[in-house]
Design a binder for these strands. Structure first.
Lengths: 232, 232
DNA sequence: CAGATATTTTGACAGATGACAAACTTTGTT
DNA sequence: AACAAAGTTTGTCATCTGTCAAAATATCTG
C-alpha cells in the first residue's frame, strides 16, 4: 500500500534538454498528482502545484503550455503506470485460468483500496464527461484492461462467442471499478473489501463458467426474467 | 429517458417567505444541476448559474450564503429525488423475490444510462472525497438503497447471515454503479447496457441463491481460491 | 572556462470568482 | 392603498486564476 510521495506515475523521457528538464517535468507532475489526490480538482491550480514542488508558478507554463495540457500529461502518466501494473499482475498470473482471473480481480480490488486510486479515478471519470481528450485516454486504458480480462474469460469458457464474452468482460470490469465508491480508501465498506474480493471472484468465475451462448441476449426492457444462466 | 430541463430534483418547502421565494430557490437549483450536468464542476460558477436561470449573480447569494451551501442543497435535492424514485421502483416491485431483485437491478441500470445520472454521480463521487458533508449525504443515499436491496437479497436467500448478506448487497450495488463509467450515457459500452442488465440479474441472483453461510469469508490476500459458492 | 542553450524567477496582465452592501422592486396582508 | 417583509438588481471589493514576457540563473558542450 504505497503512500509516501506518489511514485505511481510513468514518465516518457523528453527529447532534448538538460537532465534538470526531465527532473522538473516529473517534479511538477508528481506535485500535481499529490494536489489532486489530497485536495481534489478544485484545488488543482498552477500556484498550488508550484508551491507543492518548490517551484514558481511561471515555471510550470514553461513545461506545459496550458493547464489542460498539464492535466492531460498527468493523466497520461497515471494511465501509463496503471497499465504497467496491470500488465505485471497479469504476468504474475497463476497456474490455471480460473486462478489467473481470480488473482487479477484481487489485484484490481486491492489497488482500489489505495488512497491514490480511490481519489484519482472519480476525478478522471468526472473530467472525462467534459474533456474529450481525457475521455479518449481513459477509454484506451480500460480498453487495454479489457483485452487482458477478455483473454482470461475466454480461457475459462472457450465456448462463449466473442461478442457476448466482450460484454460480460466489460460488465466485470465495470463492477470491479464500482467498488471504488463503496469499499475504496476511507469508504464505509472499506473493511469488507477482502470479502468482496472473495465474492467477486466466486460470483464472476462461476457465472462465466456456467454461461452458455445466448444467455446474455437482452429481453424486453424493465421485464428481464430472473433466471440462472441457461439450464446449467 | 427525461432530458429536457431537469425535473429530477426533490425540493423541500422553505419555511416562511413568499411564493416567489420557493420559485427562485428551485430555479437556481435547476440551473445549477443543468450547468453541472452540461459543463461539469469546473463551470459551476455563481454567474454561470445565474445566466442559466435568468437571475443575477448577487441574487444567488441571497438564497445561499456560500457556494458550498448551494452545492450541498443541490446534492440534497438530487439525492432526495433519487431516493424517491428507488422507493417507487421497489414498490412497483414484481411478484416473487427474484423478479423483484431483477427489476430493481434493471431500474438502476436504466437510470444510469441517462445523461443526468451518468454526469452527476462521478462529480459527486469526486466531491465526496474532499467534502465531508457531501460524503455523508452520499453515504446516506447509498445506505437507503442498501436497505432496499438487502431486503430483497434476504428474501431470495433467507439462510444467509445478516453480516454476509450486507457485504454481498454492498458489492452488488457497487457493481451496478460501476457501469456508469462503462455503459452510461455516451460511454463506449452504452449500447450493451440491455445485455448488462440481463447479465447482472442472472449473475447476482444466481450467486445469491447459491450462496451458503461462510462463502464470503476472506482467504489470504492475493491468493483467493477460485471456486463456485460452496458445493452448491 | 566561454558560450550557447535550457531552466527559473520575477513581475505583471486581463479576466474571473465568491461575497457583500446598498438601493430598488415586488409581494402579500391588513 | 399602505406598509412591512421578501426578493432583486447594481455595483464593488479583495482575491485568485492562467498566461506571458523579460530578466536572471543554471547546465552542459566543446
Amino acid at each position: 500500500m504505497p503512500e509516501a510521495h506518489y511514485p505511481n506515475l510513468k514518465f516518457v523521457p523528453r527529447e532534448g534538454g538538460y537532465a534538470r528538464g526531465q527532473e522538473g517535468f516529473e517534479l511538477i507532475l508528481k506535485a500535481a498528482l499529490s494536489v489532486l489526490v489530497d485536495q481534489g480538482y478544485r484545488a488543482l491550480t498552477l500556484r498550488g502545484i508550484a508551491k507543492d514542488c518548490g517551484l514558481k508558478a511561471g515555471n510550470i507554463s514553461y513545461y506545459f503550455k496550458s493547464k489542460d495540457d498539464l492535466v492531460r500529461a498527468l493523466l497520461e502518466a497515471v494511465a501509463g503506470s496503471y497499465e504497467a501494473s496491470i500488465e505485471e499482475a497479469v504476468k504474475r498470473g497463476g497456474d490455471d485460468p480460473e486462478r489467473k482471473l481470480t488473482n487479477l480481480i484481487a489485484f484490481i480490488l486491492d489497488d482500489i483500496t489505495t488512497r491514490q486510486t480511490t481519489h484519482i479515478f472519480p476525478e478522471l471519470w468526472a473530467l472525462s464527461n467534459h474533456d474529450p481528450i481525457v475521455k479518449e485516454r481513459l477509454e484506451e486504458l480500460y480498453g487495454r484492461e479489457h483485452v487482458h480480462f477478455d483473454r482470461l474469460v475466454r480461457d475459462v469458457n472457450p465456448d462463449l462467442p466473442a461478442d457476448e464474452r466482450g460484454v460480460v468482460t466489460a460488465f466485470i470490469i465495470a463492477a470491479l471499478e464500482g467498488t471504488t465508491v463503496f469499499a475504496g480508501y476511507g469508504k464505509s465498506w472499506r473493511a469488507s473489501m477482502p470479502q468482496m474480493q472473495t465474492i467477486a471472484a466466486q460470483c464472476f468465475v462461476a457465472y462465466v463458467k456456467a454461461m452458455k451462448p445466448g444467455d446474455s441476449k437482452a429481453l424486453a426492457t424493465g421485464a428481464v426474467a430472473a433466471q440462472a444462466p441457461s439450464p446449467g
